[in-house]
Design a protein around this nucleic acid. Structure first.
Lengths: 119, 119
DNA sequence: CACAGACATCGATAGCTGTCAATATAGATG
DNA sequence: CATCTATATTGACAGCTATCGATGTCTGTG
């Protein structure tokens, strides 16, 4: 049965941390957050996230994404896997097609951590 | 004379882009933003940013930072250089000591781009 | 000037990563 | 079952990067 889960820890990762400038991140926290940023820190993956997030309906089919780049299909597949394993993209296979959807929670947490509210 | 500058483009980089989910990033935009994320996408550098940003006065001396890690001084120096060249840390040499300060503008822009306001 | 301390740079090395071509898998369809 | 199409996996390779030890540079001090 669908359990009414706590709804936190979007990517099994980081809604964990106070903003960067509040108090210093522990090593454990840093090692938890870094992989998320690493997944995002690539031009192709940034555009993939953006394409998916801005797609009508909030999801995009791999077939659409492949055509947006001058890269081979395995390469795109690789980048999607990286983003998915980081918890930034959710997969949904429907028939022969696979749809990806951005994890708005994970993105929001990351954004909040980096873009300090104070200032 | 101090000019009342536009106040944008914090790191010569990215206050450039609409949030990820508004409309797809161009390749040029992605290639502009990715280096910032890459600089941040390392546990040591994340902690360095956090240590500096959360330090009283908003700045920290390298001598303080060195002791916070089990790494050699050249390695810390290297990471600081990466962050500085990305535009995320500002350097200020005062006598023998060097102080670093987080670029709150760059961080805010990045955070805004990633953590979509909608939702 | 000589020296000591703070920080940066250099050179080397092991490990990671983006890309591709080739191949596999899995769903739809005849 | 045979085949086509969409996506994933594998293996290989070039390029990047985190780290270190050694050394250089600059600054204050005796």
């Amino acid at each position: 049965m669908p359990k009414s889960l706590p709804l936190l820890d979007p990517a099994g990762t980081a809604a964990c941390c106070p903003p960067l400038s509040a108090e210093p991140l522990s090593q454990a926290q840093a090692e938890q957050v870094a992989p998320l940023l690493k997944a995002l820190a690539d031009p192709v993956r940034l555009r993939l996230m953006s394409l998916v997030a801005s797609h009508p309906g909030g999801e995009a089919c791999v077939c659409d994404l492949n055509n947006a780049f001058d890269l081979t299909q395995p390469t795109i597949s690789h980048h999607l896997k990286v983003l998915h394993e980081a918890g930034l993209l959710e997969r949904d296979k429907r028939g022969v097609w696979v749809y990806y959807r951005a994890s708005t929670q994970a993105l929001a947490s990351l954004g909040a951590l980096i873009g300090d509210p104070r200032l």
